[in-house]
Amino acid sequence: MDISVVVPLYNEVESLPELTSWISRVMDDNNYTYEIILVDDGSKDGSWDMIVKLKESDPFIKAVKFRRNYGKSAALNIGFEAAKGDVVITMDADLQDSPDEIPVLYRRITEDRYDLISGWKAKRYDPLTKTIPTKLFNAATRKMSGIDNLHDFNCGLKAYRKTVVKNIEVYGEMHRYIPVIAKWAGFTKIGEQVVEHRARKYGKTKFGWTRFINGFLDLLSIFFVGKFGKRPMHFFGAMGTLSFFTGIIIAIWMLSEKLYLIAHHLPYRDVTANPLFYIALVAIILGSQLFLTGFVAELVSRNSNDRNNYQIEETI
């Protein structure tokens, strides 16, 4: 199979007929073999009923329905697991991504041999309250990830080589940083394609201000997981060692100073009266706790196997 189109959706009943018809038309015009995987993330507006109706007339549609809303990352992860195409293309269900971009994305993967092509909506139809924070996040992500050639990490329109989606895990709200996850997994040939951004035709956006806070926290998380996910003791152990020995050095210095004063019959004050005593004590305790945190994190990283366990109500 040439292409799997994975479409996560939440309350997009109005756009689904037009979107699936548009995708099928593009596929037929280019003689692609394909499947459309619709992942209903717990919609409440009748989206699943519409999907069932659409499948009756379109055998290329496959669909998964979550029992409740888990988020876009969960929907993408399940879609990636189900995908069988040599190239996997993701797009949003709100018609702001154009299926007409599929052929060029497919060629960038198959002919230019990229692992991942991320769309860049150079001209956007979003308000400044959305575009300005997005630019800040993209700049921070470029700096922290070292992927300097991407302008828009969060664009929903992306193309992947099949081996990429089968070897990465998307959870929480990490869909914003899939290129970073792919890079940490060893897929380093990542490119960009300017794509059309269309104004929303139906409904309203499902994302609020909380996504910017979550985005920042996810950026820190993905940086930590990418660098230390398989070796958390290196992170916590290094910090613990620094803190512990800083406290020990301060304590030794204070004790040496007191012994020197005693030996020379000079006046001295009790060690506990010196603020440095408490700084040294806190540093030693904190260092010990960081060591313990590192050991616990090592155990968790080796035994966590159900992070992406979602309740699926129905599959067709």
Score class of each variant (00 low, 15 high):
263 A>P: 03
144 M>S: 11
282 V>S: 14
216 F>E: 10
240 G>V: 04
136 L>Y: 08
132 I>V: 15
125 Y>P: 10
96 Q>K: 09
239 M>E: 06
265 H>A: 11
132 I>Q: 11
65 K>S: 11
20 T>C: 04
12 E>R: 10
73 S>Q: 05
309 N>R: 15
12 E>D: 09
19 L>I: 07
19 L>C: 08
165 V>E: 04
60 F>C: 14
194 V>S: 08
249 I>S: 14
43 S>C: 08
1 M>A: 14
84 K>F: 11
86 D>R: 13
196 E>L: 10
125 Y>W: 13
245 F>S: 02
191 G>T: 04
188 T>M: 09
153 F>C: 00
58 D>Y: 11
151 H>P: 10
231 R>Y: 07
267 P>G: 02
127 P>N: 08
71 G>K: 03
186 G>P: 04
200 R>Q: 10
110 T>E: 15
87 V>C: 09
182 A>I: 01
10 Y>T: 09
66 F>P: 05
30 N>P: 04
232 P>K: 00
42 G>I: 01
306 D>V: 09
309 N>L: 12
286 L>Q: 07
307 R>V: 15
21 S>T: 12
99 P>K: 01
268 Y>S: 08
112 D>V: 08
289 Q>K: 07
98 S>K: 06
39 V>L: 11
127 P>D: 09
120 W>H: 14
197 H>D: 06
125 Y>K: 14
123 K>W: 09
130 K>A: 08
147 I>V: 10
212 F>H: 09
65 K>W: 04
52 V>G: 08
212 F>M: 05
288 S>Y: 05
188 T>N: 12
286 L>T: 10
170 V>A: 07
203 G>R: 04
57 S>H: 13
214 N>G: 15
89 I>N: 02
256 S>W: 07
301 S>L: 03
63 A>Y: 01
228 F>T: 01
149 N>G: 05
256 S>R: 10
45 D>W: 11
90 T>E: 02
82 A>D: 12
236 F>M: 06
95 L>R: 01
6 V>W: 02
203 G>D: 05
276 L>E: 03
171 Y>L: 10
157 L>H: 01
171 Y>S: 12
75 A>R: 00
236 F>G: 03
152 D>W: 01
139 A>D: 15
27 M>H: 10
307 R>Y: 12
172 G>I: 02
256 S>G: 12
114 Y>S: 06
125 Y>D: 12
154 N>S: 14
19 L>F: 06
313 E>T: 09
13 V>Y: 11
311 Q>N: 15
137 F>R: 12
141 T>Y: 03
111 E>M: 12
215 G>M: 06
120 W>T: 13
152 D>F: 06
142 R>F: 03
315 T>M: 14
76 L>T: 03
69 N>Y: 09
274 N>P: 00
291 F>N: 07
267 P>N: 00
51 I>C: 03
230 K>P: 06
264 H>A: 05
251 A>W: 09
312 I>K: 13
233 M>D: 07
70 Y>M: 03
232 P>E: 04
52 V>I: 15
96 Q>L: 00
305 N>V: 09
210 T>V: 09
113 R>K: 13
254 M>P: 00
145 S>M: 01
171 Y>N: 11
183 K>L: 04
151 H>D: 15
142 R>C: 02
98 S>N: 12
52 V>M: 13
228 F>M: 02
280 A>E: 01
55 K>Q: 13
2 D>Y: 13
